[in-house]
């Protein structure tokens, strides 16, 4: 089956961020397809490469990047939500006059249309949030 995943909560604050990852892994392990993972609300904070958890804790951001690389996942961060919360790639930095970028590898920033499209293209969209 073809799944899309929506992640609405930030890493470490809310288990939704972990559950979404664990669900994604389980889906892939069962041989299903993930059309897209979309990050919205505080979920966009899953995409900052500046995250530095204690060494004995899981690194939620790196975990997504690794999974994306291994399975060619499409990890999309909502641009409007990202702008509010300071998640920036090179294009956004240029456009908004920012002096730094922090988008982690494997993620891309795009519009909410990508969420609607994820709903259209997938057979199931699974929401992880509060």
């Amino acid at each position: 089956m073809k799944f899309s995943i929506l992640v609405n909560e930030g890493p470490y604050t809310h288990q939704a961020a972990d559950s979404a990852y664990q669900f994604a892994k389980a889906v892939l392990a069962k041989g299903h397809e993930i059309y897209r993972v979309f990050f919205y609300h505080d979920g966009v904070n899953n995409a900052t490469r500046l995250t530095t958890p204690p060494q004995d804790d899981r690194n939620i951001v790196n975990r997504w990047s690794k999974l994306a690389e291994e399975h060619k996942l499409d990890l999309v961060v909502c641009v409007a939500a990202a702008q509010r919360r300071g998640i920036v790639d090179e294009g956004e930095a240029k456009r908004n006059g920012k002096d730094a970028t922090n988008l982690a590898p494997g993620f891309r920033i795009s519009g909410l249309g990508q969420l609607i499209e994820a709903g259209i293209q997938a057979e199931r969209i699974v929401v992880f949030g509060d």
Partner: peptide, 9 residues
């Protein structure tokens, strides 16, 4: 905001 995009699509 998502609702409006959904309608636009």
């Amino acid at each position: 905001e998502v609702v409006l995009i959904g309608a636009a699509f």
